[in-house]
Design a protein around this nucleic acid. Structure first.
Length: 556
RNA sequence: GUCCCAGUAGCUCAGCAGGAUAGAGCGACAGCCUCCUAAGCUGUAGGUCGUGAGUUCGAAUCUCGCCUGGGACGCCA
């Protein structure tokens, strides 16, 4: 807990004590103490609405309650300069903010660890994201999912959760067969033979590329094979090719997974049978119309779901249930799945399945990534795997730049539709907020370099009592908020809370930069102290950017 | 028909564990570089928070209805 958090905790305690001392509520029915930072500086550094909340319990006017609270308030608890009643019954606290300078050495000592909190309490969390079928290039939606998922994992990790990142490979079932058939068609086409694509084939450029590569490398060698042999060969080749490409693309997107989990493995190691048995033993399975059904309706689903089709094969749901059973058996207390919006209807049945397996349905949490629409030249572009005309993640990164893409996706709440204006993102103008934050970091780096040239190194012993100008105090307050921003982002699963923080911090720095000069040859003491201040801003900014996978450049 | 997401300034969006005069960027307008990076800063203008009711001391925030836009509702994956 840093000094700013400690002070807030003390304040809250002092407020509670005052409530009890004034006999306004008992230990049991005291409302949760809410301490907030007023938007308007004139309303002090902190304020509480405790008096208003007590109005119902104590049956008195809020302002009268506030009077009593103040009378019973122990001001020596925290560095309070004055406090007053305002508006409908707020109590505003004006702090002596000198304690805030303690943040500077705290942050410098913590370095890249600054921002860590323990609210996660080592809860074992597994986050499954992207999990795109290995049948083509990752497109915009996947890119958004990858950016949000990875950022969320970074945040959870920083907040003290034990996070595991996982990618579920759909390497069984129809889509892989279609992949093999598509490769087959492209192979023959590359050889100059006209062979039609399968009905549900994948028309992406990459599959055309595979066909060409096969034709170039092996000539017509495969044409001689039996259809069956060729199918198996192409199936395996296509899968391997697609997976390698996926991994590389994600790596280039600064996303790494701890586990790549194969759907096929569930077939091979009996996990599907075990899951079916568990569901049967728990009495949730019945046979009808020649199919095997899971009774999900009692657990909040619209209708029951087929597990084994008439033809004896599994539906998509069946191995997925086995997969989730396996996740839970691996000891994860919380499963967070990041799904595209087109899968949202799938949530009730998966939660029902988890309940049917005998687990808490809320062990599964699904974060929905809404659609991305790309606009270019004011025109909306379609993203469809079918037509193969979709803009891929790779193309997007090449065109816009990785930092901008990652920032842009992390910036908006994930469950709302996103219009991605390509022209805007491409133009390296100040409309792109990522530059705003990176620029702050580069500016700091530049000043630190120049300080070092003068023999002044940030972090060397300095007199922090020289820090206290208005802009400096605002900057310090922002710095102190970082751990709470992370805690909130983690608990609410909202990475965009971090980009908001980044923006605020960068803004506080730019504002400070324009108001005060860091390097002052006339005043070495002050220079030394301010170098340490901006050093702590640099550390915090870099840590925050790292959470969303954006680089922190030394120069721009 | 059922379900999900959205509707807040001209545009793109924050705010939604109910709190003070609803914020930011872009765009518009007016200022700031003999000075550490002007990709910056400072200020002005701009809003019936889709709509109607309800809950209460208080609603952009919670509940219900309605309107508009987008999406999902397979023995596909």
């Amino acid at each position: 807990m840093n000094i700013a958090e400690q002070v807030q905790t003390k304040l809250k305690e002092a407020i509670k004590e005052a409530v009890i001392k004034a006999n306004l509520a008992t230990e049991e029915n005291i409302p949760m103490c809410l301490l907030e930072t007023p938007r308007d500086k004139a309303h002090g550094d902190y304020s509480t609405n405790m008096a208003m909340q007590l109005a119902r319990i104590a049956k008195k006017a809020p302002r009268a309650i506030a009077e009593e609270l103040i009378a019973n308030f122990d001001q020596s608890k925290a560095s309070i300069e004055k406090l007053e009643i305002a508006g409908p019954g707020f109590i505003n606290f004006y702090m002596n903010n000198s304690y805030l300078t303690e943040l500077i050495p705290t942050i410098i000592n913590a370095g890249e660890k600054y921002g860590e909190t323990t609210i996660g309490n080592h809860q074992k969390v597994q986050v499954e994201f992207v999990s795109a079928n290995p049948t083509g290039d990752l497109h915009l939606g996947h890119a958004r999912g990858a950016a949000v998922g990875d950022s969320l994992c970074n945040i959870l990790d920083k907040a003290g959760y034990d996070v595991s990142r996982e990618y579920y490979i759909n390497d069984a079932g129809n889509q892989i067969n279609n992949l093999a058939l598509s490769v087959d068609a492209r192979y023959f086409q590359a050889l100059g033979t006209d062979k039609p694509m399968p009905e549900d084939g994948y028309h992406g450029q990459d599959i055309i590329g595979i066909g060409k590569r096969l034709a170039e490398e092996f000539g017509d060698k495969f044409a001689a094979l039996s259809d069956e042999e060729r199918f198996d060969t192409f199936r395996e080749y296509g899968l391997k090719y697609e997976m390698e490409k996926l991994k590389q693309d994600l790596e280039n997107f600064r996303v790494r997974f701890d586990v790549w989990y194969s759907e096929t493995s569930l077939y091979n190691n009996g996990k599907i049978d075990q899951a079916l048995k568990a569901l049967r033993d728990n009495g949730h399975i019945y046979e009808e119309d020649g199919a095997t059904w899971l009774r999900t309706t009692p657990m909040g689903d619209d209708k029951d779901r087929v597990l084994i089709k008439q033809d004896g094969s599994y539906t998509y749901l069946t191995p997925d249930i086995a997969y989730h059973k396996d996740k839970l058996e691996r000891g994860f207390e919380k499963l967070i799945n990041i799904w595209g919006a087109d899968h949202h209807g799938y949530i009730p049945r998966m939660k029902a399945a988890i309940e049917a397996l005998g687990y808490e349905r809320d062990a599964l949490e699904v974060e929905i990534i809404q659609l991305v629409h790309l606009y270019k030249d004011g025109e909306k572009m379609k993203m469809s795997k079918r037509t193969g005309k979709a803009v891929t993640m790779r193309e997007l990164v090449e065109e816009v730049g990785l930092d901008a893409v990652r920032y842009f996706f992390a910036m908006r709440s994930a469950d709302t539709h996103l219009d991605f204006d390509l022209d805007l993102a491409v133009s390296q103008s100040n409309e792109n907020p990522v530059y705003y934050a990176q620029y702050a970091h580069a500016r700091i780096s530049s000043i630190l370099r120049q300080g070092a040239e003068q023999g002044l190194v940030a972090g060397d012993a300095a007199d922090y009592s020289l820090i206290g100008a208005e802009k400096e105090v605002e900057l310090l307050k922002k710095l102190g908020e970082f751990p709470q921003a992370i805690a909130e982002a983690a608990q609410k699963r909202i990475p965009h809370r971090i980009t908001n923080y980044i923006y605020d911090l960068a803004s506080a720095f730019h504002s400070f930069y324009n108001a005060e000069k860091v390097l002052d040859p006339e005043n070495k003491q002050k220079t030394q102290a301010r170098l340490a201040l901006i050093k702590s801003v640099q550390i915090t900014l870099r840590n925050a950017l790292a959470l969303i996978g954006v680089s922190a450049p030394e120069k721009m």
